[in-house]
């Protein structure tokens, strides 16, 4: 059986800055993989390399057995298998919610208007914002916008969903709505690769947790192991800081 996503020997540099230093990741069908780590560790860049929004400097990316990094690949066709949800939602501001979820179905998948509307509405209902279909993104709360963004990606029937810190731009009380929908997706068997700071979500929903630091995968395994009982010093200190943000370390150097 082919892997849903397979990344091998991935390197990415921006000029002289080496962001990813040899990453190997495999996501199996139906798995939820959460990527955690400090900011600047390359988590988002890894995710953006998986659907080639960033071109890898070296290495290979396979999605459902197709090599996206191959020089002659039809990248637009290959991306249709990958849904992406962004930190900043990136809804199309000049279109209604319904148009946001149908435009790519109609222009890319060439679905009829009625078919696209039917599928779009079904996904809007699924994420709980169907009553906002005729409104414009600017009229919606952040949580609603992010759920529309999920419906937009789901309407393309992707094999894998990529989430790039989907709750980081949200007001705290709206985070729950988005995480609930993500949890529901996971329960339905969607293959998901999630970059997140929500440790609770990673612990409860992920099949595999990946801890990244300084462009490398430091530790990976089931959440009970990586989050519950980390082996590496860097993982321990990161989790310690994230889970006890008000705790002052005794060893903290005084300025």
């Amino acid at each position: 059986m082919t892997h849903a996503v397979q990344v091998t020997g991935l390197y990415k540099s921006f000029g002289d800055l080496e962001v990813l230093k040899g990453i190997d990741v495999t996501v199996e069908q139906g798995q939820v993989v959460c990527v955690i780590g400090p900011s600047g560790s390359g988590k988002s860049t890894l995710l953006r390399c998986v659907n080639l929004l960033e071109e890898p400097t070296a290495g290979q990316v396979f999605v459902s057995g197709i090599e996206l990094t191959h020089i002659d690949v039809d990248i637009d066709a290959a991306r249709r298998k990958l849904g992406m949800v962004f930190q900043q939602f990136n809804l199309f501001g000049h279109m209604s919610v319904l148009d946001n979820v149908t435009i790519a179905q109609r222009r890319v998948l060439k679905r009829s208007k009625s078919k696209a509307t039917e599928i779009g509405m079904r996904n809007l209902e699924k994420v709980g914002v169907a009553e906002k279909a005729t409104q414009y993104p600017a009229q919606l709360s952040g949580g609603q916008q992010q759920r529309v963004a999920m419906a937009r990606a789901l309407s393309m029937d992707p094999d894998v969903m990529l989430f790039d810190e989907p709750t980081s731009a949200l007001d705290p009380e709206l985070v729950g709505d988005v995480l609930t929908v993500m949890r529901q997706l996971a329960d339905e068997g969607m293959t998901m690769l999630v970059v997140t700071h929500e440790m609770q979500f990673a612990r409860e929903v992920a099949d595999v947790v990946l801890f990244m630091d300084e462009g490398k995968v430091v530790e990976q395994g089931p959440p009970a192991q990586v989050i519950g009982n980390p082996r590496h010093e860097r993982t321990k200190s990161f989790l310690h800081r994230v889970l006890n943000p008000t705790h002052v370390e005794e060893t903290a150097p005084s300025p």
Binding site: L53, D76, A77, R80, G83, L91, V108
Partner: peptide, 9 residues
């Protein structure tokens, strides 16, 4: 990026 990630050229 959103448009490209939906498969648009």
């Amino acid at each position: 990026e959103a448009a490209r990630s939906l498969g648009m050229s």
